[in-house]
Amino acid sequence: MKKWIKIILLLVLVAIVVIVVVKITAPTETPKYKTEEARIKNISQMVELCTADIHEEWAVKDSIHGKWIVARQTIEGRIRFDLDSLHIEHMGDTTIVYLPPERVDILEDASPRAYEVLDAWDGRNLVFPRTLTAAEENTLKTRWQHRVRARIYHRGYVKDARANAIKSLTPLFNAMRGPEGTDGPVIIIDKTPLGNPYY
């Protein structure tokens, strides 16, 4: 009986050694990246004024649930104004145009090397490290988008974009007719010249 227990124990030990050796010596996964042809999802129309174009490359180190990542990302930021949703009021023969809230779009540059992971590790478990999941990585990327947006406001890009928008639109609106078809004065009002980061 004891002999059988010894044999089983030996087999388990051998199996453990084999698994450890395989785990250590096995080459890393060599995946194949298969892709489907790109498809047009939709085409939408709008009238938008783009007054700022921000191109930025940055390195970022961040963590979520104790999992760390160091990456390099190229950002494309644009500040836009929707001219289809302009709010126009008439007071007597005066036309009042309100500059709409800005829309700050933060996207990743479309070039292949716009996002590169330089390092990723589990800061909590060194023996059985966990991998950063796609959902966690997306949460981090959304956090980075917010950071870039905050930086755009902080650096005054939105303030400049709003001033540029008024400069661009003033000649256009000055030529507008008043409510009774008269050439009344046109006033362009910017309620938030610094922009609204919480919009």
């Binding site: 085409i43 783009c50 007054t51």
Partner: peptide, 11 residues
């Protein structure tokens, strides 16, 4: 003066 006027977007 309007400069860059964006009119259509494709996803």
């Amino acid at each position: 003066e309007v400069s860059r006027l964006e009119l259509s977007r494709m996803t």
